[in-house]
Design a binder for these strands. Structure first.
Lengths: 229, 229
DNA sequence: CGTAGCATTGATGTGGGTCAACGTATGTGG
DNA sequence: CCACATACGTTGACCCACATCAATGCTACG
């Protein structure tokens, strides 16, 4: 692993307080691997070999049942995933695939559990990380159950605008269909919802959204800090 | 707190490996409290004062937004809740109310964080508990997104039958409307779904369900150990 | 320039929520 | 002991959000 990535990982909340010795122990056996787009990284039902960390690119967590598939989460750098399965050494409940070319840091599950048993600081960091992931999951569950698809899109636009510096102009760097799936709707409904939002201050021109009337959008979206963020 | 409850709590995975000293420290300041039915125990948006543990009764976790309410989980003894909020000392994302008269053990949040900082065994137990709760949440999310309401009911019947000793006869100890809400549907749809299941081997007579054709029910329900417990 | 893939738009179907009516059981007071 | 009230369960009618299917437009790239 390169120096730059070493520092990046070291500075994650999860590893910040781990002793140098234990951090080296984790990293010595870790792999930093590049994957092309569309690769299945893990499969639900398998036992965890590695703790995965998205270092670059986008990863989709999904699950299948009886011929149907559902997206459970979409991850951006830098995020751990399947931490719970690694800790408990139980089968994955979700599958993962790369939505873009991606760089994934993979730490052998046994090494994580070993250090977890010996390094109290790491154990505490793990609690915090898991708690954070848990709360993210609750938020996205509330987002799904308490808002309709147009509202979810409106709030995504508000958040993305804040993320891109409140310029009121959002450049879309992913496919609309990918964003649609991320927001839990079909591409067709995504289009219709976008059209709806023209009534609430959003102009769309190709891969750009422009917030023409911020107050109107805000009023429609009703952002809520117990759901968003 | 009585001796019996002391032992019950002590034997929870969360407290099994905590030192006697630290366990006493947690329990000294803890409250074991009885609540009547329908009491709001915690409110989303508040900061956590206590870690809650359902010792007796049933507790519903729910959330509100813009005049709508949704049930996020229903808890049976013995389960911790709002652990993630306590660990991170951040606001609750869910509210909780007692669905039945309930007995709740409340451990001051600060005491939990104190012992967590000093007792590595407790920190590790917390990780395991949180990971278990995380996985439960993923399972119920998959149950909601990958099955329709009739399938959810069918699987609940299979699970409850297993739970009651595979007698093929299930005694309902809660209101049908409560069960409906627990399975994420209205009482009206619950009735209709139950009627549907008569085509798949389930006979219903008042507060009793009888599995008349186990194979048929199983075939319809398609139980999945990556969704069901 | 033609083809492939994404985006958009319209028509239609379906799951499940809502509203209303009615049946059935369990009290409660005269 | 009966009349009545209250509440739950069931059934039917209807509606809404969203998925699906189909047709067409748009863009890009060999």
């Amino acid at each position: 692993m390169r120096q730059a990535e070493h520092h990046l990982v070291r500075s994650l909340p999860l590893f910040l307080s781990v002793s140098e010795k234990h951090f080296d122990e984790l990293m010595n056996t870790a792999l930093l691997q590049r994957f092309p787009q569309g690769v299945t990284l893990i499969r639900e039902g398998d036992l965890p070999d590695f703790l995965h960390i998205v270092v670059e690119g986008t990863v989709e967590l999904f699950a299948n049942h009886d011929g149907h598939e559902t997206v459970l989460d979409i991850l951006q750098p830098v995020t751990t995933f399947i931490l719970a399965a690694v800790i408990r050494d139980e089968v994955y409940l979700k599958s993962a695939r790369s939505l873009t070319p991606a760089q994934i840091l993979m730490i052998p599950a046994q090494a994580v559990r070993d250090v977890f048993d010996r390094d109290a600081a790491f154990a505490r960091a793990l609690v915090n990380e898991l708690a954070a992931r848990y709360r993210c999951l609750v938020r996205s569950l509330k987002n799904e159950k308490l808002r309709n698809s147009t509202e979810r899109l409106a709030n995504w636009i508000l958040q993305e605008d804040a993320h891109q510096g409140r310029k009121g102009r959002i450049a879309l760097d992913i496919d609309k269909r990918t964003l649609a799936s991320r927001l839990g709707m079909t591409p067709e409904n995504f289009s219709r919802n976008l059209a709806q939002l023209s009534k609430h201050g959003v102009i769309t021109s190709g891969p750009q959204f422009i917030i023409e009337d911020f107050a109107a959008l805000q009023q429609f979206a009703k952002p809520n800090n117990l759901i968003d963020q």
